[in-house]
Design a protein around this nucleic acid. Structure first.
Lengths: 331, 331
DNA sequence: TTGTAAGCGTTATCAT
DNA sequence: ATGATAACGCTTACAA
């Protein structure tokens, strides 16, 4: 059933090379082109990408490896990558590591074994080993999470700036003391977000001790809830809270609502959209956290590299408030 | 940099065939096996899956094509498929169609071109054309959405039964008139769910006209909200509502809460977990909607077929209340 | 412009 | 148990 370019060639009365040329857009006479196309249609011929990959030593597939498919930030990122990659003729496969470095390694191995053209990696590991990929010519771009000494391109949001702006927004609404709940100190982003908050806090609440108004916890609702409770139990509690990601915001909101301090009674700002529905929250300051933008930029960078750009590794820091190119319409 | 089995063979002082045998677990003498393994390690050799796929005419990759990566039901399904497939030595790539038949077709094409071992498809199209796959020996299993005349295996949940049970649960809690909000009539599942509801409604509220208490809308929160409002505006409004999926439940809940009829004042049941957090809802009857189970069963079926089972296509209808095998621990 | 033929890196057949 | 060798289906020099 499965036909090859030899079958097509025979049917069209040309050589296999000519069939290949038609398929790949090289110069072939109109009449032979037509004969080949007809034969392709009659046989319902689909070229084997496997053979092409073997011969070309690189496939047209890009792996996007993310830690959590259920997080809307990463699915938005996936959309961004996919839109750009598909436009450029690549397909994207999505791999979910579940924040597990073992699974991450497995997917990196697969990328090598399948000779993929490139990998966009939102690392679960603090220092992923990329040499098996780079030494084999597989382009890698890191996204979302800064790593210490990236040997490849890196695209991140400006964590510090975003946190500072969200904090500022709360002060601008008239709150006097804005606390901060951020991620674990060993997470790559938590200290950056805390630093942005601290800068504004020290300027606007110079009388207070910043460390008393800062909490570290895991980036999940439970942590946000507990940290909010602990902040509200202070002798001089804050009158507003910045949560350094969306899930922390959910936890903080749940505590505030249940303890009768629903915003704006106590101010709340979050980095990233809260999952729908969040107790019908309207008075929460949302700092956009544009996953799609990140994906688009990462894909663009990856494609440039694949096309041969060999300049030094770049680190791109995106501000979270710039607009993102729209999604293309499919066909 | 990239080495081949010839390099390994030379280094180990054996033939390429022997290297291949070691890699694939055929019988090779212990000493040669050791030499080959050593050479593999020294060269950091990774066999080319591309070449293997070309030679074997089938890869070890399974495509999972779903309409919405942002829906937790489908991500749960993905987990189920992945767990089983990875156990069996396959990798899974996730493809998101966005409910768009054009994108669906594109991914089906890719599955052919990459000679994938199999496809698990949750169809966006009412009648996906599978012949390009089946005619080339690519196994396909459909999941979640029944299609009219499946020529391949199909795994679905028992929509009617689940709706009936959830409705029953509301009556058992003492409600007297349970309305139903389901999906668009042309969706493959909405009429089934409505039928389950109707069976119980007619038995328990024989005095009422079922059609007055049934609403069709799209499976999204906005639709659920509007439909709930319309039901509550009836001269004899229902005292409870069954929503035929989780997002309709969110919409219904938002309307009830805001109009001061938060459950249990008005009863509410939903098929599937409500997205977290849903206004701290506790008094909502949740009928489980086990995506992971569906994925596990679909993958098992697919793997059986790939291993050569050629019996007639089967349709498996799963009850939504049976337990699901647990997720494996990674390594 | 077109055809011939040599790979790409495996696996599998057939000897030995 | 091991080795030589012919595919697998395509791309691409190189020739014509």
């Amino acid at each position: 059933m499965a036909s090859t370019i030899y079958d097509v060639a025979a049917r069209a009365g040309v050589s296999p090379a000519t069939v290949s040329r038609v398929l790949n857009g090289s110069a072939v006479s109109p009449e032979k082109t037509a004969r080949v196309r007809a034969a392709v249609a009659e046989l319902d011929f689909r070229p084997s990408r496997t053979a092409r990959t073997l011969r070309r030593r690189s496939s047209e597939v890009i792996a996007l490896i993310i830690p959590d498919v259920e997080n809307t930030f990463f699915t938005a990122l996936a959309r961004g990558v996919e839109d750009r990659a598909v436009d450029a003729g690549y397909s994207v496969v999505l791999c979910n590591t579940d924040e597990n470095p073992v699974k991450e390694d497995r997917y990196l191995d697969i990328a090598v074994a399948e000779q993929m053209a490139g990998v966009v990696l939102a690392p679960a590991s603090p220092q992923p080993d990329l040499t098996p990929l780079t030494s084999r010519g597989i382009t890698v771009v890191l996204v979302d999470r800064p790593v210490a000494d990236p040997v490849v391109d890196l695209v991140v949001l400006d964590n510090e700036d975003a946190a500072a702006r969200a904090t500022q927004a709360l002060y601008d609404r008239g709150y006097r003391r804005v606390a901060c709940i951020t991620g674990d100190p060993d997470s790559p982003t938590a200290p950056l977000r805390a630093a942005g908050w601290r800068r504004v806090f020290c300027a606007r609440s110079p009388e207070a001790d910043a460390d008393r108004y800062l909490r570290h916890t895991d980036y999940r609702p439970g942590g946000g809830r507990a940290a909010t409770a602990s902040l509200m139990a202070l002798s001089e509690p804050p009158d507003a809270v910045l949560t350094a990601n969306n899930l922390l915001g959910v936890g903080a909101l749940s505590y505030l609502v249940e303890s009768g301090r629903r915003p704006p009674a106590v101010g709340l700002a979050a980095l990233g959209e809260l999952p729908f529905p969040s107790w019908g929250a309207t008075d929460v300051v949302i700092e956009p956290w544009p996953g799609r933008l990140l994906g688009v930029r990462a894909a663009d960078l990856l494609l440039e590299r694949i096309r041969g750009d060999a300049s030094d590794p770049r680190t791109v820091v995106l501000r979270s408030d710039v607009p993102c190119p729209p999604a293309p319409v499919v066909r």
